[in-house]
Design a protein around this nucleic acid. Structure first.
Lengths: 329, 329
DNA sequence: TTTCTTTTTGTAACCGCTTACATAATAACA
DNA sequence: TGTTATTATGTAAGCGGTTACAAAAAGAAA
């Protein structure tokens, strides 16, 4: 059953059926009724791929919105986390006749600026429930990237931090470590919280005492005071699992400044798998999240929403992959 | 850049390009080389939608595999959980020129039986890591439905039990309840575990003592002993959050046999949103999971994998919706 | 009633790919 | 070398929609 058959049954042209299907203006109410009836009678559902293919002539306009904080560090040619993610988005956009524009995610959002925009990707951990509510209110298709807000039902693409962290901890335990510390960023960022939860749960499941320290990775200030505190209260750990690669590298630098050797004295594992960690000394063990894929999945999901009006939002989480390198045993 | 342009550059017909792209046999190695070169030069990627549309003539064969336990209760016209899920699969299959076949998920799997099968959906909480490994080994595209196995990286579609449970608990707390008990099925089923985790975490976050009882929902034996135990040790709770609707209804029946009124004395909330709960007395408050959507999402994901060879597996979780009915205040 | 607008409908080309079938080139054989 | 079998390539018709444009119908104005 396709649009042509429907057209025949309703005794109109396929163009008219298409118009009805797309709520186009220029259809008389009588024919609309007639077509709608046939449509209902045969429970017609449109082939989404045909639709997509045919409507490829119109490009989809999508805004990639990032917070000022991230925007400042966004180098589209670089290999940093969000650079790669945005690259993934743009790549997928290419394949989907979509044009993207990178826009700062402001606090006072303005409907005017969204004229002609078909969908929005909110990238990064700074996205708030307020943002989401704004876009939902105006009915703008929306996907969060690398952020999840449990209290708001909205599509999102994230990495599976919980299981990644869990894997890291289990790995360290398998190396006979017991004193495993977690150093993390602000826990109001979902990504960090998720990894933290995975760390804590896995430690507890193995009857080990979780011990964590929070480090403000945005300002990248000196980590020595934190380490001092840790050494005094907790002693020197056998292994450190960090929230992300930047923190992990900072950890290693700081340990070295205390003349503690990595990985001989302490094993360090990061998270994200950014390029920089590969060339760091010692090269960084990490949980690699498929950043590029994260971006492209988000764009594809957005397109799905824009074109198929998928009603049920989903949370898509990407598996991470453990990469053992020089910073850990 | 499309197949026609490539054809022009390589000075061959589009059919030939298509053949190269699909590793078809009948292409001389010289032309294949030539085309491959152009393809690489222009970094050509095929439009997946066009491909799908054009190859609609070949149907995709998918096996819907369910455990014997579930198969026994599977009534395709019914409204039970897995019936609706399978319905969702079949519906989506219709839209995707796929033919499905329901097959029992055996323990001793046989490669022979999978001749001509393009992909497999493993439905239900009985799917094990062994099953998954078998299919991965033979390179069979695979999606788990309503099951997640953290230790194996494989695509899956599940409901977000954690946040659903969390929502339920928060709701009950907002009604000024403090003594909130959780009655759940076997926790080696991911779905139950996930909901359990959400319950425990949310109770603790609100400084309430989590209290849970396990009930074997498969045999549906008498729940009175369990209740007796609960009343003796814990007293009568103010609210009970159950792992799923079946258990919730069993709970209500049992409470009634103790002359405890629902919802006046105890509020009860289930999970799943099966049809039966709507017509139960009192009608069941529940967290509705979009079962139909779960099925169709799984099929669509499978098709994506079969046709686009998506390499990174993802976990897709569906949001649940709280439906307040008569069994809770 | 005629003419000019405006609205409604239909026709046909196109989206980017696959593939049945026809044709050309090559290989095999007598 | 001529004939036939085999393999390589091309042509063109779809797949199921959208939409520019043309044509017809309906309304408004003269």
């Amino acid at each position: 059953m396709n649009i042509r058959e429907i057209a025949k049954k309703a005794d109109v042209s396929i163009a008219t059926v298409s118009r009805v299907l797309n709520n186009s203006e220029n259809v008389s109410s009588s024919t609309r009724e007639k077509v709608l009836e046939i449509l209902k009678k045969y429970e017609f559902e449109m082939d989404p791929w045909a639709k997509r293919l045919a409507s490829k002539r119109n490009v989809t306009h999508v805004f990639i919105m990032v917070s000022r904080r991230i925007l400042r560090f966004l180098d589209l040619k670089g290999k940093e986390f969000y650079s790669v993610v945005v690259n993934g988005i743009q790549n997928a956009a290419n394949m989907n006749r979509s044009v993207t524009k990178i826009v700062e995610m402001e606090t006072n959002l303005d409907e005017e600026k969204l004229k002609g925009v078909d969908g929005v990707l909110l990238v990064g951990g700074d996205t708030t429930a307020e943002h989401v509510r704004f876009f939902k209110k105006i009915g703008m298709p929306l996907v969060l990237v690398d952020q999840y807000i449990p209290t708001v039902k909205v599509d999102c693409v994230v990495s599976n931090g919980y299981d990644g962290a869990s894997y890291a901890v289990k790995y360290l335990i398998s190396q006979h470590f017991k004193k495993i510390v977690h150093i993390h960023g602000f826990l109001n960022h979902f990504g960090f919280k998720d990894r933290y939860n995975g760390y804590v749960a896995t430690m507890e499941q193995n009857n080990l005492l979780p011990k964590d320290y929070e480090y403000n990775d945005e300002v990248m200030e000196d980590m020595k005071p934190l380490m001092d505190k840790m050494f005094n209260i907790y002693g020197v750990p056998e292994a450190i699992f960090a929230s992300n690669d930047s923190i992990a590298m900072k950890v290693i630098e700081t340990l070295m400044s205390f003349h503690i050797k990595v990985p001989e004295d302490v094993s360090v594992i990061g998270f994200d798998g950014i390029e920089k960690g590969k060339h760091f000394t010692p090269s960084l063990s990490t949980l690699k999240v498929p950043m590029h894929e994260m971006g492209s999945l988000a764009l594809k999901r957005l397109i799905d929403i824009v074109y198929n009006q998928d009603v049920y939002p989903v949370k898509i989480s990407l598996f991470t992959e453990f990469i053992k390198r020089g910073s850990s045993i």
